[in-house]
Amino acid sequence: MSVLLEVKDLTAGYGGPAVIEGISFDVFTNEIAVILGPNGAGKSTVIKTIFSLTNVLGGSVQLDGKTITDQKTSKLVTMGVSAVPQSHNVFPNLTVDENLDIGTYAAPPVDKMATREIILGLFPDLRDKLKQPSGELSGGQRQMVAIGRALMCEPTLLLLDEPTAGLSPAYLERIFDLLLDVRKTGVTILMVEQNARQALQIADHGHVFVNGKNFISGTGQELLADENVRNSFLGGAAS
């Protein structure tokens, strides 16, 4: 297994004090990696920092051996990194089709129509909503549009910030199943999750952060079995 993304001693914040300090972890090619931790642990900040949306104060991020710490967000998209924020992740006044189309502008795929077909194959619910403004869709469908948009540029690395936030348990399972399908198309996924138990069940690796620092890392099974993690993070997780 080769390392796709290498995060080393990363320290970053939003202009004020550092929110994450000295974070290090690796993401392997074509795996699903999940970032866990209590509220305020800086999980989202890790994702945002990788995507150049924060102020980096120290450390580095490497994609495929190239340092990307100082790259602009728009450049990262052309390098094959795509991201879905937690909320406000669709353009509400644009139709579903237009939302997907927007995903191709920064880094056009080789065959736009073919990519669109693959994505509609992954998210069949969207097929008969293509002409609808995406603001009118349900939360779960919006999440599909958002992930679909991010996949339209055929990324190698997909960053997801709490893709199941606010979704019903039924939809949560569907989204996780979909992510497994997305991985089969060759995409590497790094996501932040609150629903730790379910996330670890589909994840290859998990990284737990507390107070902006590394706490523990391991495979999904290791973390599920770990006494410490179970008591601190999995006990309250609804199944």
Partner: peptide, 26 residues
């Protein structure tokens, strides 16, 4: 505005400038 790339990008930025940036729009 509804068919061209530039027109759609304009509507996207008007809708949500942060998401437009995340989507890599110019």
């Amino acid at each position: 505005l509804s068919k061209s790339m530039t027109g759609r990008s304009m509507r996207a930025v008007a809708d949500d400038p942060e998401l437009a940036q995340i989507s890599g729009l110019d």
